[in-house]
Write a protein that binds this DNA or RNA. Structure first.
Length: 885
RNA sequence: GGGAGCGUGCCGGAAUUGGUAGACGGACUCGACUCAAAAUCGAGCGCCUUCGGGCAUGUGGGUUCAAGUCCCACCGCUCCUACCA
């Protein structure tokens, strides 16, 4: 074999990448009425500077989807961008004194280069970066839309405050002991005035519309539904009584999903932060209550919510009247009651709620059972609360009612008597979007002493991030210290005023980027309604499961708000969602020291040992990470095997939503497959086969078939070859239709290649060309460079032709010829009493009676039935005959 | 505690939705080629077997002519969520 005909991906891939780009093969076509549009989207990355295997898997999957759609003749939008605001850039600024913007732009450039090496068919003309003013200008504009709709507001909220660095920390920056990741200081809770978006206004819609999302994984829908957390119950009011037991005007409202248990309420508990605590605490309890509130306020979120922790609380001295039975019961505060959920107050029903039960036992509060299980007069709980259904007792006029009915009856009574009402409660809370950080999108408002909060007028957008900023990592947001930036005149009254110095949560920036791609260059609006409505919703969205809740929920929320403002006309942004599994690397760990060993330091993988101590190592697969030395650098793989091998391996090794175990031996195997394809085409060329002038296309095949049937039919090899070709078309088309099964699609390519190895040589030119042509087109979405190269080699295009029309990627997806799959005879399985006993070759068109007859006459039947007629015969045409003796 | 999902050879994984379990690939074994190795090509590859066959899809039951697939119970693993009243 000559040197020039070896498969060397390094020699062909970059050339094709450049040629595709220069010839605009991946440009987004203009949409005309009646066009089938397809929007294939990957979740855009944070530009860390390094592409990792998780990215590769994500983008390759989306790229295959996009390429298949183009081959099917659809107009495709396949863009890419950068989720470019966020902490890493600011940290680089603090630690190394670099400019966050410049650092980010460098990373973007280097990652774009790495992405291009994968041969992705991305339209870079529509690239967006959330940190560029021409993008965040519109993030600000959209914020003002929310403000105008009354969906953005400020309120005091508790934040994590680092007292040493004088700065706000995200939850992730506080370790499990409540210390700052940077300064190590014990983090305090502080109240700061923060911006919120009223996502709770859309809770019901966000929940209801999950039903529309049939193209989403069930578990993502479930996770969102749980996150929104709708529960139906009642708000009930307990009247506060004075020291003499007389009713006051004060009421405590609790939320409960179990109004049926109200007769069992033996106390009421407020969250320590509840506004009534200070007011209602009696003098003799003041010291204790204050100490308790102080203790709780210093606990981290994690400590506070650890479930195995004993529940703690104190009584505040005051009492309330149970509205159902008039009993006086005490008010407590406790750490297990959350201020932010419901009313921040609950009724304690120890007999029928496990938390109340534990609390009551700890503080010796009375336990009153009010529900007994049906068909049991036993005392139904020992050691635990009875939380199941049953019949009411000790509940006055409601005694004997099943508790389901009692819920309704008691809620109705409460409403009629003025001490309560039905209530739907959501777990979802409003979205806190303020960040006291520099590297984010500035919130475009101005605070004026006279006019209050004044939005920056739209024509003054963007509020640009100043670039001349000092980063110390201390003393709050760098923006707040930049007086020249902070001090402005009020757009309303012209008096001196101050800019908002908070920036937005980066999730704000990523909640609408997929809309911007439809009209990325628009300088008048974030996007035109026409453009956004013609491309969206996204037909296929691909990304990691880690975004199952926040990013996807926020994006859905944005979409609904913008729809309600008339900016777009669809309800949901993403029609189909694929959450790809993570990429795992082989990981070695010394079980004695707990240290991870790099695979490069393991001499013999079949007997992995610690290079220092000789200890036998644990071997397993785990998500790639630097600290475990189990990462595989995509650049190294591309260098060695080429992008096509990397793409094929990733797609073949595991179904897309499952975790993928990176295995060098398998990569090698994948490379061998591509080499075989190269040789297959090579020997076809040596035979003189060429795809020029449409050789092997549908017309040529139809003519050859007609000629063949006139002269005695196809040769057996040709029949086998055609069957393999058209089986592959059928199977691969099916695998790529909706539920993406790239792994089996690749295996079908292998089967086709195997069949061609056996039958191509003995087949006539037309059918050989049909097979080659089909194989290359089916391969094109998976291995775009190799298929393009082989296409050229085989004369599928002349090197002088314009690439835009003659590229393999401009061809049409093949259509299966059902007649190629037809056989004269088919194997019929003979079962005796359900067990397979043999095969019988039978005419494909035989009817049931014939099949039964053939089966009964067969040697198999003779042997197993021993001459007796079967008691029962089941015939499944085309499949089997089951004879039951 | 709640929710979702999964369990198939040595390994990754297939299985037309109830119809020949183990496709395709990796690893491994043998053979051809080679001075040799790699590459390549060919063969084998669930377990047991007295070579008739028997047993096999986490375990135990059930439905069915027929179960990896449906139903019930149990065991194990993974992920998410977590005091939401």
């Amino acid at each position: 074999m000559s040197e020039s005909s070896r498969y060397q991906p390094q020699a062909i891939e970059t050339g094709w990448q450049r040629a595709w780009r220069e010839n605009g093969l991946h440009d987004t076509p203009e949409l005309k009425p009646g066009d089938e549009a397809f929007y294939a989207l990957s979740m855009f990355p944070y530009p860390s500077g390094n592409l990792h295997m998780g990215h590769v898997r994500n983008y390759v999957i989306t790229d295959v989807v996009a390429r298949v759609q183009r081959l099917r003749g659809n107009k495709v939008l396949h863009p890419m961008g950068w989720d470019a605001f966020g902490l890493p850039a600011e940290n680089a600024a603090i630690e190394r004194g670099v400019d966050p913007g410049g650092w980010t732009d460098q990373n973007i450039a280097s990652m774009r280069e790495q992405l291009n090496q994968l041969g992705l068919s991305i339209d870079w003309d529509r690239e967006v970066a959330t940190c560029h003013a021409d993008y965040y200008r519109w993030t600000q504009w959209l914020f003002l839309q929310f403000l105008d709709s009354g969906l953005a507001y400020q309120k005091d909220a508790t934040v994590n405050w680092d007292p040493i660095d004088q700065t706000v920390l995200a939850n992730e920056q506080v370790d499990s002991e409540g210390r700052s990741w940077r300064s190590g200081a014990l983090v305090e809770k502080r109240k700061l005035r923060q911006w919120f978006l009223k996502i709770t206004d859309y809770a019901q819609q966000l929940l209801d519309d999950l039903n529309q999302l049939e193209g989403w994984p069930e578990r993502v829908r479930t996770m969102q539904a749980n996150w929104i957390g709708r529960s139906t119950g009642a708000e009930l009011q307990f009247t506060v009584v004075d020291a003499d037991g007389n009713d006051t005007a004060e009421r405590i409202t609790v939320f409960t999903t179990r109004p049926d248990t109200i007769f069992g309420a033996s106390y009421v508990v407020l969250a320590p932060e509840h506004p009534l605590v200070a007011e209602l605490t009696t003098a003799e309890h003041e010291i204790e209550v204050e100490a308790f509130c102080d203790l709780v306020s210093r606990q981290s979120e994690q400590e506070r919510t650890a479930e195995d922790k004993p529940k703690r609380g104190v009584a505040i001295g005051a009492q309330v009247r149970n509205p159902a039975n008039g009993e006086l019961i005490p008010i407590w505060i406790a750490d297990y009651v959350l201020a932010e959920y419901g009313t921040g107050a609950v009724m304690g029903v120890p007999a029928h709620d496990q938390r109340d039960f534990l609390f009551a036992r700890q503080y010796e509060l009375p336990v009153q059972q009010v529900i007994i299980p049906e068909d049991s007069d036993e005392h139904a709980f020992e050691g635990g609360a009875w939380t199941e259904g049953g019949v009411l007792i000790h509940s006055g006029r409601f005694d004997g009612l099943p508790n389901g009915e009692a819920k309704l009856a008691i809620t109705a009574a409460a409403a009629a008597e003025g001490w309560g009402q039905e209530k739907v409660q959501f777990r979802l809370r409003d979205w806190l979007i303020s960040r006291q950080r520099y590297w984010g999108c500035p919130i475009p408002v101005i605070h004026c002493d006279s006019c209050g909060v004044v939005p920056v007028p739209a024509e003054q957008l963007p509020v640009e991030l100043p670039r001349d900023v000092a980063f110390s990592g201390k003393g709050g947001s760098p923006l707040a210290q930049l007086e020249s930036w902070v001090n402005v005149s009020c757009p309303c009254c012209g008096k001196p005023a101050k800019r908002e110095t908070d920036t937005m949560d980066t999730f704000m920036c990523s909640s609408w980027y997929f809309l911007r791609y439809s009209d990325a260059k628009n300088s008048q609006l974030p996007f035109s309604k026409e453009a956004v409505d013609s491309w969206l919703p996204v037909d296929q969205y691909v990304g990691g499961i880690e975004h199952a809740i926040l990013h996807l929920l926020y994006s859905r929320f944005f979409t609904k708000v913008l729809r309600d403002r008339g900016l777009l006309s669809f309800d949901e942004p993403f029609t189909r969602l694929l959450t790809q599994g993570m990429v795992q690397g082989i990981t070695y760990k010394n079980p004695l020291t707990g240290k991870y060993i790099a695979p490069g330091d393991v001499a013999d993988p079949t007997d992995p040992r610690d290079p220092v101590s000789g200890e036998v190592l644990e071997t397993f697969f785990e998500k790639m990470s630097k600290s475990k030395y189990n990462g595989v650098d995509p650049a190294v793989v591309i260098d060695k095997y080429g992008a096509d091998t990397a793409r094929m391996f990733i797609l073949f090794k595991a179904p897309p939503e499952k975790d993928l175990e990176w295995d060098d031996a398998d990569v090698e195997g994948q490379f061998r497959f591509l080499q075989r394809l190269w040789r297959l085409v090579d020997s076809a060329c040596e035979r003189g086969l060429s795809l020029a002038a449409g050789a092997g296309n549908a017309d040529a095949v139809a003519q050859a078939l007609a000629e063949a049937s006139a002269s005695g039919g196809l040769k057996p090899d040709e029949q086998e070859l055609r069957r393999a070709v058209h089986t592959a078309i059928t199977e691969i088309s099916d695998d790529l239709d909706g539920d993406y099964q790239f792994n089996t699609a690749v295996s079908e390519l292998m089967k086709l290649s195997n069949a061609m190895g056996s039958h191509l040589e003995a087949s006539g030119e037309v059918f050989a060309c049909e097979a080659l042509r089909t194989l290359l087109i089916l391969l094109a979405p998976f291995a775009p460079h190799l298929s393009e190269e082989l296409w050229l080699k085989l004369g599928g295009r002349n090197s002088g032709d314009a690439l835009a029309g003659s590229s393999i990627h401009a061809q049409r997806w093949p259509v299966a010829d059902a007649s190629a799959l037809v056989r004269d005879t088919v194997p019929l399985v003979i079962q005796i009493k359900g067990k397979v006993r043999g095969n019988l070759e039978v005419p494909a068109d035989a009817d049931k009676a014939t099949l039964e007859k053939l089966a009964l006459e067969s040697d198999i039947a003779a042997k197993w039935l021993e001459g007796k007629p079967p008691s029962r015969v089941i015939v499944v045409p085309g499949k089997l005959v089951n004879l039951v003796p």
